[in-house]
Computed example of a mutant assay.
Amino acid sequence: MLQKRLTTVLLASLLTVNAPPQIFAMESVNGPQENVQAQCDVLRDAFIWSLFDPIGKVLAGYDDDRQFMVDKLVEIKRLEQGQYYWEATLKVTTFEGAHNPPYHSYTVTFTNLFSKQPKVVNVQRTERTTYLQ
């Protein structure tokens, strides 16, 4: 059941990236675009949320069991035309508590190429020497 939901979320995300915004409009094409942007944001957030467990496993591999936030979806792209294969790169920051500084930054790239689950393609870890204001 979880695998089916993940597949649905990933499919919706890929469709969002490659479909014209008018497809998702709840009103006419000439109407307000706020709904289109809101739906794209929801689909992006759902896609990112579907990667929380794989991100947690990546961080555990670095013995980093802190909380994390996804700062940015850097890139998402289709790997093969006509297929549901994708590659996504995210920027992630670990932290402890709401008022403490961030500890590490990660740039993680996942793919589902020939896999039913997201696989890690690349991880870059950076020590945080300066803190966000």
Rank of each mutant, 00 (worst) to 15 (best):
D64T: 06
L90H: 01
M1H: 05
L90G: 00
K116W: 01
K116T: 08
R66W: 09
I55K: 06
A12M: 05
L43R: 08
Q39H: 07
Q81N: 13
K77C: 12
R44P: 01
G31F: 10
A88C: 00
M69C: 12
N100F: 00
V70Y: 01
V92T: 00
T109S: 03
Q3H: 12
T130I: 13
A25P: 06
S115F: 02
L6A: 14
L132G: 04
F24I: 11
A19T: 13
R66E: 14
Y62F: 15
T126S: 15
D41L: 12
E80I: 11
A12R: 08
D64N: 05
W49H: 12
E87F: 01
D64A: 02
E34D: 15
D53T: 06
H104V: 06
H99K: 15
F24N: 04
D63T: 07
A12P: 01
F24M: 06
T126V: 15
L43H: 03
G97K: 11
P102M: 08
S28Q: 11
T129V: 10
Y84I: 04
V120A: 05
H99W: 15
P118H: 01
L10N: 12
T94M: 11
N18L: 05
T93C: 09
Y62V: 07
V9D: 05
L59W: 01
S50P: 13
D65Y: 09
A60N: 08
A46G: 07
I48Q: 02
D71R: 03
E96Q: 12
W86S: 02
T8S: 14
D71P: 01
Q83F: 08
S13G: 15
C40G: 13
E34G: 13
V92M: 00
Y85R: 00
K4D: 14
Y131E: 13
V74A: 11
L132T: 07
E27L: 10
C40P: 07
V70G: 02
E80A: 10
K57T: 11
S13D: 03
V74P: 05
R125K: 15
D64C: 02
D65I: 06
I55P: 04
L79A: 02
L11H: 12
V74S: 11
H104E: 13
A98N: 10
P20G: 13
P20L: 09
W49P: 03
Y131T: 14
D63I: 02
Q124K: 08
F24V: 10
Y84L: 10
L15R: 05
E127I: 14
T109L: 04
V108R: 02
L79W: 09
P20K: 14
H104A: 11
K72H: 06
R44V: 03
F110S: 03
Q124F: 02
V17M: 03
T93F: 11
V58R: 04
V9W: 06
P32E: 14
R44G: 02
L59I: 06
Q3A: 15
L2Q: 12
L15Y: 11
F68T: 06
G31Y: 08
L14P: 04
E80T: 12
P102D: 15
V108T: 03
Q37F: 14
K4P: 07
A19G: 04
T107R: 13
Q117M: 11
P20E: 15
Y131L: 12
D64R: 11
V123G: 01
E127W: 03
S28R: 11
D45C: 07
